[in-house]
């Protein structure tokens, strides 16, 4: 039977949503599903992988893999993919996977389709599409001369299936790869936010120049907390230093594709739209009803941002925390 290898990522005790989406798609394809996990303690996630469809889980559970290293992770994952015999590899378009898989692809003399938004996988074929030119068009990525077809999917594009708590998987341990010493991971500096990264967030509340000041911008955090959302910003806000650049959405910031994107006081410059037009539902909140953002929005609210923000926070709290 044809096989599919799914690279999984987790935090604490849970697999990331993007990983669950891919396990669900892999299970539905009718292929034999082999999952791969790399890092210390990841073995604890193997039963979860089984619940969502993995039949076999490959585990490289070593202390020295606690921090990402492009060299050792490439070695570990390449060994797993080769061992699995799979001709299709799925991974979420995460910060780690986007760094890792092009190199794995080159080592396997194969191609990689990154940042895909459409995946059709069955027992024989895999078909993927991706946005190009900041979402101004899309194209199919056809694999040619590619013994292994590596697909990096944007999170929040596919459904997550119901877990089957009775399902179990075989696990196979892989040894930690030897390091050449040419590249060492020295340190990890924590960021400003412990929330889900913008690129993977399911709900984003973003603010623009219309928020007026760094002080006012903080109001969006209350709203984001009520929704379990991650906060983003326009370039103007990042350049003004109200928030770090890591929160910038747009052409020279993050490309995001949440289910819900709420834009506060963002006029909708083309460079901003380039980063968020892949969002499923866009809510624009602006005092100027003619702002270009409304042309991309699903729902539009016009009014005083500082009246609307607390009212929305209150309504979301009522609706979601009954």
């Amino acid at each position: 039977m044809a096989k599919v290898f799914v690279f999984l990522e987790g935090n604490n005790q849970d697999l990331k949503k993007g990983s669950l989406e891919l396990l669900t798609a892999a299970k539905a394809s009718g292929r034999e599903v082999v999952a791969g996990l790399v890092g210390p303690g990841v073995k604890a996630l193997a039963p979860k992988a089984a619940h969502y469809g993995a039949q076999t889980t490959f585990v490289c559970d070593a202390a020295e893999l606690g921090h990402y290293n492009p060299e050792t992770f490439t070695d570990a994952v390449t060994a797993m993919v080769k061992d699995s015999g799979a001709d299709v590899v799925l991974a979420s378009s995460s910060v780690l996977a986007r760094d890792l898989f092009p190199r794995v692809a080159a080592r396997l003399d194969s191609g990689v389709a990154s940042d895909c938004t459409i995946l059709k996988l069955d027992g024989g074929t895999v078909t993927v599409r991706k946005p190009l030119y900041s979402g101004k068009c899309t194209a199919e990525v056809e694999f040619v001369n590619s013994p292994v077809k590596i697909v990096l999917m944007r999170p929040n594009q596919l459904p997550v299936g119901q877990p089957d708590a009775a399902a179990t998987a075989q696990t196979k341990d892989f040894p930690a790869p030897a390091a050449s010493g040419k590249i060492k991971t020295k340190d990890l500096v924590k960021g400003s936010s412990s929330k889900t990264d913008l690129a993977e967030a399911n709900i984003i509340v973003a603010g623009g120049r219309g928020m007026g000041s760094a002080e006012n911008f903080k109001q969006l955090e209350d709203l984001a907390n009520a929704l379990g959302a991650t906060v983003g910003a326009s370039r103007a806000v990042a350049d003004a230093g109200w928030v770090p650049h890591s929160m910038q959405v747009g052409q020279t910031g993050k490309t995001v594709a949440p289910s819900l994107y709420i834009a506060f006081g963002i006029s909708g410059a083309i460079q901003h739209l380039a980063g968020m037009s892949g969002s499923k539902v866009i809510v624009a909140v602006n005092k100027d009803g003619d702002a270009p953002i409304f042309q991309k929005a699903t729902y539009g609210l016009v009014g005083d941002l500082f009246e609307l923000a607390p009212k929305l926070t209150e309504e979301f709290k009522k609706a979601l925390h009954k």
């Binding site: 991971t185 020295k186 990890l188 500096v189 936010s193 990264d197 993977e200």
Partner: peptide, 8 residues
């Protein structure tokens, strides 16, 4: 990397 964290 995620959330403005940095790997060195």
């Amino acid at each position: 990397i995620e959330g403005g964290a940095r790997e060195i």
